[in-house]
């Protein structure tokens, strides 16, 4: 009986004194923090990807709370819904921006762009790139060692073993831009995700003259300029023998895709085209019709 009482007393004293110490320490080392930081952090996706330019979501949240306007702050992962939620918490307006996605601008798969030598060093794009131009005749194309895959925090980009090229998963990609920075050949670009994931882009970055580019890769852009002539929206420019489609101007009419002699221009997620409709209907209406059809 005595033992039980004694142990209760001893434990009680230990417990009480611990509580007092904890209370005092918590008071002493209490850090006053804006409670909104926690709220903003909760609204963020919590991926800690660094795509916003801050190291981790909490730092981004702190920056948001400190900022007067949210124009320069943007969470690429959460996109507009997240930013408007953050804006609501802080009582600020956010600009509505379109969702983006990473696009791989090289289509030189193993069969279209044959290997002319064998690389035998560390399997790393940056290392291979600092050594030489690559295993194929094209000195601009994808090396295929997957630096983009390594840096992706969202498991959204993978090397297709058949083509040897990276492929972006539309659903998983958050456009954080890590792969864009990692690619030593600057092949990956962030482009507008597009309605229903529909995009048109030049799948090539080869700046060689047409003949050289074509010799190295059958699907290279040869800078012939047919697409420029075909485009009614001035969206396509040619620089250094390479066409580039400005995604802010492109209206997804798909005419350039049809005229490209090498198949370097890609379309994604479009319904199969009807030849007659393509040619006869004017561009502006084409877009409209397609919008209605889905």
């Amino acid at each position: 009986m005595n033992i039980i009482v004694l142990s209760l007393i001893v434990l009680g004293i230990i417990g009480c004194s611990a509580a007092v110490i904890l209370f005092l320490v918590a008071r002493k080392f209490n850090v006053q923090e804006d409670p909104r930081i926690d709220l903003v952090e909760q609204a963020l996706p919590g991926a800690n990807c660094g795509g916003c330019g801050f190291s981790g979501c909490r730092n981004f949240a702190e920056a948001c709370v400190k900022a007067d306007v949210l124009d320069n702050l943007r969470c690429p992962v959460g996109g507009t819904p997240t930013m408007s939620e953050v804006g609501n918490i802080l009582g600020l307006t956010t600009e509505i921006s379109e969702p983006m996605i990473a696009v791989v601008r090289c289509s030189g798969s193993c069969e279209k762009r044959p290997h002319v030598n064998t690389y035998n060093g560390a399997k790393n794009c940056a290392i291979a790139n600092s050594l030489y131009s690559g295993e194929t005749g094209c000195s601009f194309g994808c090396l295929g060692f997957g630096d983009c895959v390594t840096v992706c925090q969202f498991d959204a980009i993978h090397i297709n073993m058949e083509t040897g090229l990276p492929e972006v998963d539309d659903d998983k990609c958050t456009a954080c831009g890590a792969c864009v920075k990692a690619c030593p050949k600057s092949i990956i670009e962030l482009r507008k995700k597009g309605p229903k994931n529909r995009r048109i882009f030049v799948g090539c970055v080869n700046k060689d003259k047409g003949g050289i580019a074509r010799k190295a890769c059958t699907v290279a852009c040869i800078g012939c300029g047919k697409c420029v002539k075909e485009c009614s929206f001035d969206a396509i420019t040619i620089e250094n023998n390479l066409a580039y489609i400005d995604f802010t101007k492109c209206r997804l009419c798909r005419k350039c895709v049809a005229v490209c002699p090498t198949g370097a221009i890609h379309e994604t997620n479009f319904p199969p085209r009807k030849e007659d409709v393509q040619v006869s209907v004017p561009e502006a209406e084409t877009v409209k019709i397609e919008d209605l059809s889905k």
Partner: peptide
Amino acid sequence: RPLLDYVRQGKA
């Protein structure tokens, strides 16, 4: 191991 490959890259 490809030691120097990575070291050279890091050095650059």
